[in-house]
Simulated assay, not measured.
Amino acid sequence: MITTRALTKRFGTTVAVDAVDLRVREGDRYGFLGPNGSGKTTLVRMLLGLVYATSGEIELLGKPVPKRVAEVLPDVGALVEGPGAYGHLSGRRNLALLDAAGRGGSRRTRRGRIGEALERVGLAHVDQRPVKAYSLGMRQRLGLAAALLRKPRLLVLDEPTNGLDPQGIREIRELLIELNRDGTTVFLSSHLLAEVEHLCTRVGVVDRGRLVLEDELAALRAATGRVLVATPDAADAVAILDGRVENRDGERLVIRHEDPAALNALLVRSGVRVRSIDSERRTLEQVVLEATGPGSDRFGEPG
């Protein structure tokens, strides 16, 4: 769905995107992670033909961009750097104008498609108030509704949950998972590690313009060789496990062991009550910090 080869963008002497080889496959929920200023938005804008690359190649839906971008865009929904809208018009009127100016949508079905898009992003109840009276979160929802007008094969989203409260973030996450399940590939650029960890199946990490990591999220979050156990008999468990307990915090133990099932069987046979047991896995934060090194604490800072 998206392929780049040695994609580079320079602004004078500043290298914003540095020889990036990106691959987003059909059906992915791809999280494109990077701290603010790492080149994420510049790369997204190049994908959509809004900014020209200094060098390198881009393919979107199997076609070269920007050369054939006009053929591709009807199948791509995008929300980049916040939604644009006419502040004096209602959300519905803004979507109608946007749809009329685009390609691939029937005028006859326009009203129904606008209603469906607003319903999906939680704005169906909004009256005829002008967009200038919308909150930032409502504007984000309207931008996402615009991206959904033509049931795109590919969604390209830049910080889509910006300005949303926790309930709104969860609703958008559930919507994106549903769209992906129905066949839409999702490419989401973000600096919020927790949101990408909840939503995405595949991750790319960019730092200072370079792609430093790209892999399946499940593979990145591999087991650490430790097991997390909660037991009211923590002291007995420590004695039984003979030095394999690396940390104890009340009833919670961190134990060196490869097999939670075998460890659970051992503890139960020894009379230890086990409230919960699970493999410890690396967090996405740990993975990213290892890949990016010093300065990567810029992740999660407000955009």
Rank of each mutant, 00 (worst) to 15 (best):
I2P: 01
T4Q: 05
R5H: 15
K9C: 01
R10C: 11
G12H: 05
V17D: 03
D18H: 13
V20Q: 05
G31D: 06
N36L: 02
L43Q: 12
R45T: 06
L47M: 09
L48M: 12
G49Q: 08
L50I: 13
G56I: 11
E59I: 04
E59W: 13
L60P: 02
K63E: 15
K63S: 11
P64E: 08
V65S: 00
V72N: 02
L73T: 04
V76D: 02
A78E: 02
V80T: 03
G84N: 13
G84Q: 15
H88R: 14
L89A: 09
S90K: 06
G91E: 09
G91Y: 07
R92Y: 11
R93W: 06
L95A: 04
L95G: 02
R108F: 07
G115P: 08
L118P: 07
E119C: 05
V121K: 02
P130H: 05
V131H: 06
V131Q: 06
L136P: 03
G137N: 09
M138V: 07
M138N: 08
Q140L: 14
L142G: 07
G143D: 01
L144P: 01
R153G: 12
L154N: 03
V156E: 00
V156F: 01
L157D: 00
P160A: 07
P160K: 02
T161A: 10
G163N: 05
L164K: 00
D165H: 01
R181V: 06
E195G: 06
V196W: 00
E197P: 03
C200M: 04
T201M: 06
D207I: 10
L211H: 08
L213G: 03
E214K: 08
D215M: 06
E216Q: 13
L217I: 11
L217W: 10
A222F: 06
R226V: 12
L228W: 10
A234L: 11
A237W: 00
A239W: 04
I240Y: 02
I240L: 14
L241T: 05
L241M: 06
R244Y: 10
V245I: 07
D249R: 15
D249L: 15
P260Y: 10
L263N: 03
N264D: 13
N264W: 01
L267C: 04
V268E: 08
D278T: 13
R282C: 06
Q286L: 10
Q286I: 05
V288R: 03
L289T: 14
G293F: 09
P294K: 12
R298F: 07
G300I: 00
G300E: 00
E301L: 14
E301R: 14
E301Y: 09
P302Y: 08
